[in-house]
Amino acid sequence: MTPSPLSTLSTLPTAPADAQLLLLDKHQVDALLSPDDVLQAVREAFVLHSDREGRVFPVVREPLRTGGVFGIKSGDVQAQGLLGFKAAGFWPANRQRGGEPHQATVLLIDPATGRPLCVIDGNTVTTVRTGAAGGLGLRQLARPDSTRLCLFGTGVQARIQLDFALRLMPSLREVLYVSADGRRNAAFEAHFAGRCAIGPASDRNAAVAQSDVVVTATPGGGALFDLDAVQPGTHLNCVGADTRGKRELPEGLLQRVRLVVDDRTQAQQIGETQWAPDTQSLELGDLLSGKVPFERAPGDITVFDMTGLALQDLTVARQLHARALETGAGTRIAWPW
């Protein structure tokens, strides 16, 4: 005899009155994260996306009257009971307040009940998972004999992109960087002392032309170099275009390249691909999972258009949640039904 819906509901456990919500602040997240674990989590996110076991829901990305940009990236992995979202954006005025303009908060939710499980400061999560994604893209797409990298930006994201690039591509030995004001950044150089030869580029087009790898990690205010500067064999990781109207690449470049994206729809809506949405592309997850073979010819120009997957935030957040439960880290507050 099939039970009625009412009888089935009556067998469910009672909502606990002593339920708790776990909070992980910036310092706790920093203590719990490790680059190798994040690499593993981000790679898993790409493969889950490729296998369609992980879903990414439509992105919210809207400008605010305050001058900021607010976004929501959400998704789930139903087989793993993983559900949640990241509310994040960019508030440039925070620099005048002495704070970080990128702000993010991750919320993990119990998919069986809809109750929140864990609130996580998402700034470091976003930074490190984006760096790991960039590193995976470089390792998959750049020429393995690449020795020189040109980096646009010296901020938080530029630093983590270079950190993972040097970590995953030990052949890289020389870095030319372009700062926002065009000046030398001694603190930025000191961070990478002993890992590479690093210095400012005197001419951005010449630096691009002389480099095997180009990484763009800026606010995406416009093309950073001329089309003719990009030489055959170059690979480009593009980080800054994550909102409608943003771009870092010159007009006409995407028509000349082999384009790889993290998510095709997102890239066409908010990434570099918005400027050439009909460009054929592959998804990085399909390359990492082996579904799509990829071999680069010596003269190929390749581009990885990175818009950031909700699944990356969620797999890293799940990792943090589990580690906090194991170690007792974090703050627990009463969150009764």
Score class of each variant (00 low, 15 high):
residue 56 V to W: 13
residue 184 R to P: 06
residue 294 F to M: 04
residue 106 V to N: 04
residue 262 D to N: 11
residue 102 H to A: 15
residue 67 G to Y: 02
residue 323 R to S: 06
residue 283 E to I: 02
residue 204 R to M: 03
residue 218 T to L: 02
residue 178 V to D: 00
residue 244 R to A: 15
residue 237 N to M: 06
residue 332 R to L: 01
residue 146 S to C: 11
residue 20 Q to N: 09
residue 292 V to L: 09
residue 329 A to C: 05
residue 3 P to Y: 04
residue 242 D to Q: 14
residue 47 V to T: 14
residue 168 L to S: 05
residue 156 V to N: 03
residue 283 E to W: 00
residue 112 A to H: 13
residue 181 D to R: 08
residue 22 L to F: 03
residue 215 V to P: 03
residue 90 F to E: 11
residue 53 E to G: 05
residue 148 R to A: 05
residue 130 T to K: 00
residue 59 V to A: 12
residue 324 A to T: 04
residue 4 S to Y: 08
residue 276 A to K: 07
residue 196 C to V: 04
residue 221 G to P: 09
residue 286 D to A: 14
residue 230 V to I: 05
residue 41 A to R: 15
residue 95 R to K: 14
residue 98 G to P: 09
residue 160 I to F: 03
residue 97 R to Y: 01
residue 72 I to H: 13
residue 269 Q to K: 12
residue 175 V to I: 05
residue 321 H to M: 11
residue 199 G to S: 13
residue 173 R to T: 12
residue 135 G to K: 04
residue 28 Q to N: 04
residue 79 A to I: 11
residue 93 A to G: 08
residue 197 A to R: 12
residue 97 R to L: 12
residue 123 N to Y: 03
residue 173 R to S: 14
residue 202 S to Q: 13
residue 45 A to N: 08
residue 37 D to M: 09
residue 216 T to E: 01
residue 56 V to C: 15
residue 101 P to W: 00
residue 246 K to T: 01
residue 28 Q to D: 08
residue 334 A to W: 00
residue 63 P to D: 09
residue 149 L to E: 06
residue 139 R to K: 15
residue 58 P to T: 13
residue 87 A to R: 13
residue 278 D to N: 07
residue 320 L to D: 04
residue 89 G to R: 10
residue 8 T to R: 15
residue 205 N to Q: 07
residue 101 P to K: 06
residue 291 K to S: 10
residue 329 A to F: 01
residue 68 G to V: 13
residue 165 A to S: 07
